[in-house]
């Protein structure tokens, strides 16, 4: 183990040890990825696959001087992607949570809704992008793609959570005098929150994939996705890859944040997150 230097023997019960270990493992893994990439870029030797230093230079240039083709800064692109992403997520949350609760709680409603949702669910969210961009415009279109991507995993998790509620919890609430509405608010909703958070975790990952691909369509106002397609059409491949690199890093950050949120909330709700 490369981490032995830190405090002798590895102790899985020690938080600092765990963090150090996972940092080591992550570094080795990412270094491996960069090496493979480097090797491939040298071996294949085509301009579509630039080497890591070329991409790094392009990335540094983007952050230092902005995009020379449009004059926009790196942060403008990132901010634009993120704001679309967050808006799509909030919209999905606002619709999927109550809808999931209702569909989980009312069996008849779920029976009628299920076939319709089952037909829509397997459609790749990006398939809607051309339709949405024309229907809702360049601003709202990509957001709607994100919405579709996040909506289904979120709603499915909430429905699952509501249906998994211990019958004894609702029975206990009834014998304590709770009305159906109180049972819904004080038992069904809190009991389904860990499942909701699981849906958020999955949904954020999918949503992030959607945003970049949707932006490829929504060129004029797009964020990082637009930057990538713009650089590609100009044939500047290190630029393309610096965009791809940004997508990856921001994706990890998003999923990491969601994972943390899921874990801490599940803990608060008294349920083991696993």
């Amino acid at each position: 183990m490369g981490c032995k230097a830190i405090g002798g023997r590895y102790d899985p019960g020690n938080r600092a040890h765990r963090l150090a270990r996972s940092a080591c493992v992550t570094t080795v893994s990412l270094a491996g990825l960069v090496l493979v990439w480097w090797f491939l870029s040298v071996a294949i030797d085509r301009q579509m696959l630039p080497s890591p230093p070329e991409v790094w230079d392009a990335l540094a240039d983007l952050f230092a001087n902005g995009d020379s083709m449009t004059g926009r800064s790196a942060w403008t692109y990132i901010g634009s992607s993120f704001s679309t992403f967050i808006k799509g997520f909030l919209l999905a949350f606002a619709v999927a949570f109550p809808l999931g609760l209702a569909l989980g709680y009312f069996n008849l409603l779920r029976e009628f809704a299920s076939p319709a949702f089952e037909v829509l669910r397997p459609i790749a969210p990006v398939a809607w992008a051309p339709v949405f961009v024309i229907l809702f415009g360049y601003q709202i279109g990509p957001m709607m793609v994100v919405f579709v991507g996040i909506f289904f995993p979120l709603m499915t998790s909430v429905i699952f959570g509501v249906r998994k509620i211990e019958p004894n919890w609702t029975d206990a609430a009834k014998t304590l005098g709770a009305s159906p509405l109180q049972i819904f608010c004080k038992v069904v909703v809190p009991a389904s929150i860990p499942y909701l958070m699981n849906g958020v975790k999955v949904g954020l990952g999918i949503g992030w994939m959607c945003i970049v691909s949707a932006e490829l369509y929504a060129s004029p106002v797009g964020g990082i996705g637009f930057y990538i397609s713009n650089q590609a059409s100009a044939g500047y491949w290190p630029g393309v890859f610096s965009g791809i690199f940004l997508v990856g890093v921001l994706g990890i950050a998003t999923v990491g944040a969601a994972d943390y949120l899921h874990r801490s909330l599940s803990k608060r709700m008294g349920v083991d997150a696993s």
């Binding site: 211990e166 029975d171 809190p190």
Partner: peptide, 19 residues
């Protein structure tokens, strides 16, 4: 119907873990 006049202690406690 169930009501608060008959309290019940469940075989597996049925406490609310989020409270």
């Amino acid at each position: 119907e169930p009501g608060a006049d008959r309290g019940m202690v469940f075989q597996d406690f049925a406490l609310f873990p989020w409270r």
